[in-house]
Design a binder for these strands. Structure first.
Length: 535
RNA sequence: CGCGGGGUAGAGCAGUCCGGAAGCUCGUUGGGCUCAUAACCCAAAGGUCGCGUGGUUCAAAUCCCGCCCCCGCAACCA
């Protein structure tokens, strides 16, 4: 048995700008799989995330709807919580970045980074709107694209061109329509370049652990590393407490990423443990620690560079080695998920219509693990009906609801099946730790297939008619034994189903990552199908 | 000429690092079985591995070169 490890699993914080979409579930379910697995092997696990609330978008939306940014984000936060609950995410903490606790802890950390010399002052030229009386964000500006000639938003032209500082000289303010002027702006900058060596070392160490996208994307940034702005001239954000910059707020990325840490701090206070044992090398130094970061590909540089650099900038024994679990994108019906399109992609809507456990299984075996993955309702239905219901569900029914069977008989467990079960725990555990969730889920389903095959070969329906019932009992007991173990092995992927299964088999609720046995004599007359077919 | 990920049977994907008889699941077709939600088991058919009919090699899905397409990034969207 392994020694107990301290594990932090950070799932990227969804931005409170829209309802949660299915793509978030697809790229985040890996975090919940990791959490449930690590808890099962006996590690101390903190699965943390929360609502990212600050920044330009909620502020603009609030202005458009005539309400406060907080009202906007609260609406979406509610949607997030509901959807994540429906998909059975087992968060230990799901925070929110406007929480005064998060704000205060972030400010303390930023002051320390400033004192350590990693946040410095700079002067840049930015578009300023004389009418609005403030510096405008790119998304609030319109410019004439020199490539396609169209007027477009400064943060993304349809033709793909990225405007330079020069292109924005004659930008128009989208809020009031006035021409902006270039004006010098005092900003705070985070000295990312100070951590080039540290970050390069981290990438080198993880060459065989991270996926290709995070390795190469990070290398790209490191080859031309630049310091990044720290301050923003926005109201809706965490106020900067550094002297001379009190009128500015922190660019959301810097504070949202620290949410993983502030979640842990708060949880430690609530539950009475030392949060530092999860994030720092000098507390519980002999305990093995892992920090997983689960997110989609657009989040890579922030998790692979910003967060470790900030922690290093605190100069306080922080672990600066994230295990990056970077997913690609989920496409729906071959198209990218777009807020404006008609493609229905809201997570909560799917959760209310379909089985969230089989959706999780779908994402595990067919999700955007190493490349963009396509989601179609037809494919989901096929996987639900033909793999989850027919193979897994049917194995349970044909065993436990065998004609005339009312209690689970005592029988000898088949040696080959038992070895297969033991082997599956080992394989699947290794695959999950290697971040190969697709192979892990398939390996469990393979055990199901193996057991269905065993069942067919044994022909228990013939054995049941013999005078000596023992051979029949042996088959049923062997299959029931596998099913009991499937309630552990499938638990990271289909937690609610496995919980129900444990209830049927009168097993302890706790999922453990080792072979278990089902008590003979238990009543099986009331067992119901775990799944219903989807039409 | 920007950078990264990807393009493999009808569908969804492994395999590519480290070259050595094209694999998996579903679907389709045929057979077996009757315990089970018409579920389960066995077998078969189906692919010139995006393109160049490019280069290297005894041998290329895999290495090299060029091109096309999809997704992401491109530093004030997050």
């Amino acid at each position: 048995m392994n020694k107990q490890r301290n594990i932090v699993i950070g799932v990227s914080w969804p931005y409170a700008n829209n309802n949660l979409h299915l793509g978030y579930i697809a790229s985040s379910v890996s975090g919940d799989i990791l959490a449930r697995y690590h808890r099962a092997v006996g590690d101390k696990v903190l699965l943390v995330s929360g609502v990212d609330t600050h920044g330009t978008k909620p502020e603009l939306k609030a202005k458009a709807e005539g309400c406060t940014p907080k009202e906007i984000v609260d609406r979406y936060a509610e949607n997030f919580r509901e959807a994540l609950k429906a998909f059975h995410f087992s968060f230990d903490k799901f925070g929110i970045t406007y929480d005064p606790y998060h704000e205060k802890k972030c400010q303390e950390m930023f002051e320390r980074m400033y004192q350590n010399g990693y946040i410095y002052e700079n002067v840049v030229k930015r578009p300023y709107c004389p009418t609005c009386g403030k510096f405008m964000a790119d998304t609030e500006l319109q410019f004439k694209c020199p490539v396609c000639g169209k007027l477009s938003k400064a943060d993304n032209c349809d033709c793909g061109y990225v405007p330079t500082e020069k292109d924005l000289e004659n930008a128009t303010c989208l809020v009031c329509g006035a021409k902006t002027v270039q004006k010098e702006q005092r900003v705070l900058v985070f000295k990312l370049t100070a951590f080039k060596d540290l970050l390069e070392e981290m990438v080198r160490k993880n060459e065989n652990i991270w996926r290709a996208n995070s390795i190469n994307e990070t290398k790209k940034y490191l080859s031309d590393l630049r310091d990044r702005d720290f301050s923003r001239d926005l109201k809706w954000g965490i106020p900067i407490t550094i002297k001379g910059f009190e009128d500015k707020t922190v660019w959301v990325w810097w504070e949202a990423l620290l949410g993983y840490v502030t979640d842990t701090m708060k949880l430690g206070e609530e539950q009475g443990f030392d949060w530092r044992a999860f994030w720092k090398t000098d507390v519980e130094p002999d305990v093995e620690k892992k920090i997983y970061m689960c997110h989609a590909k657009d989040n890579i540089p922030f998790h692979s560079m910003f967060l470790p650099a900030m922690l290093a900038a605190l100069n306080d024994h922080f672990i600066t080695n994230n295990i990056m679990v970077s997913a690609e994108y989920l496409l729906i019906d071959g198209e990218k998920i777009s807020k404006s399109s008609n493609t229905p992609c809201e997570a909560l809507v799917y959760a209310q219509t379909y089985n969230t456990d089989s959706l999780r299984y779908y994402f595990a075996i067919n999700g955007p693990e190493k490349k963009d993955a396509n989601f179609t309702l037809e494919l989901y239905k096929t996987i639900h009906n033909n793999e989850v219901v027919n193979k897994f569900g049917n194995l349970i029914n044909r065993t436990l609801k065998f004609k005339g069977l009312t209690t689970l008989p005592k029988g000898k467990i088949d040696k080959i099946l038992q070895e297969k079960v033991q082997q599956t725990y080992k394989n699947v555990g290794e695959l999950i730790e290697a971040l190969e969730f697709k192979k892990a889920a398939l390996a469990v389903m393979d055990l199901v297939a193996e057991t269905n095959k065993y069942y067919d070969e044994q022909q228990p329906w013939l054995k049941a008619k013999q005078e000596d019932k023992q051979p029949f009992f042996n088959v049923i007991a062997s299959c029931a034994y596998v099913i009991g173990n499937l309630s552990n092995l499938f638990a990271p992927f289909m937690p609610a189903t496995c919980e129900k299964l444990k209830t049927f088999l009168q097993l302890p609720k706790e999922v453990i990552w080792q072979e278990i046995f089902v008590q003979n004599g238990i009543d099986v007359s009331n067992i119901e199908p775990l799944f219903t077919r989807v039409v």
